[in-house]
């Protein structure tokens, strides 16, 4: 059934790459922010606030601590607008501030396991029971309604995806949030989280497989 065509599709990212340096849009936005344009600042907060909270939460032990980190980040952004030189994208700069603040908080809280002690999740992407002895599917895996726009259960599905992501181990959660929710390129994620390219790929692979598996459970056992 038309599988040959699938193989020919490009394997590129489904959305545009993030710019390595500040783009024209970034520069225009920066100008407005420096002039004290409140609408520009509001838009910036709306665009990034929740993602910043998600990423902060992977470093610190409580939601309240994450909120503190994000608040501090925004203050640092406001104060640092004049010093930002545009050597990276505005978004990268903001997330870098966040990660630095979050690390400082995490270090201060002795009870918290630091991010560097990342979980050892060596499990396979799919439950081995789904395959026969030769490694072939025992039965064709169930298909997902993975496109929220095409689903009548759009809102419900979104909520589930975010719940599944929230339940992932911190390092996987940080990587899938930055790569797939926010849309950073892998180089940005590696430098933000201080992890190697190989490590990033494994964490992302595990995280995506877990999200897919979580949704598959939903398809198999609705309600």
């Amino acid at each position: 059934m038309g599988n040959r065509n699938r193989a020919a599709e490009p394997a590129s990212r489904p959305f545009p790459a993030s710019a390595g340096v500040a783009s024209e849009t970034d520069r225009a936005l920066l100008e407005r922010l420096r002039r004290g344009d409140e609408q520009a600042f509001e838009a910036l907060v709306d665009r990034h606030h929740e993602a910043l909270r998600r990423v902060a939460r992977t470093f610190v032990p409580t939601a309240a601590a994450a909120d503190d980190v994000v608040q501090e980040t925004w203050l640092a952004v406001m104060c640092g607008l004049d010093r930002f030189e545009g050597r990276c994208a505005l978004r990268t700069w903001i997330f870098r501030i966040l990660v630095n603040r979050a690390r400082t908080h995490a270090t201060r809280d002795a009870r918290h396991v630091p991010f560097s002690a990342i979980e050892q999740d060596e499990g396979p992407a799919v439950d081995p029971a789904a395959f026969d002895a030769d490694g072939h599917w025992l039965s064709v895996p169930p298909r997902l309604e993975a496109d929220p726009e095409a689903s009548v259960l759009a809102a419900e599905l979104r909520r589930h995806i975010l719940l599944i992501i929230d339940a992932l181990a911190p390092a996987q959660r940080a990587v899938i949030t930055l790569r797939d929710l926010v849309g950073f390129e892998s180089e940005d994620v590696c430098s933000l989280l201080h992890i190697s390219e190989g490590n990033q790929r494994v964490l992302l692979h595990r995280a995506r497989a877990r999200v897919r598996a979580g949704l598959a459970e939903l398809v198999e056992a609705p309600g």
Binding site: R6, V140, R143, D147, R158, L181, R208, V211
Partner: peptide, 16 residues
């Protein structure tokens, strides 16, 4: 099917 689901899933995460 698995690949196609994963491709759509990743695409939809960005629009979430």
């Amino acid at each position: 099917g698995y690949l196609e689901d994963m491709r759509r899933l990743i695409g939809s995460l960005h629009d979430l």
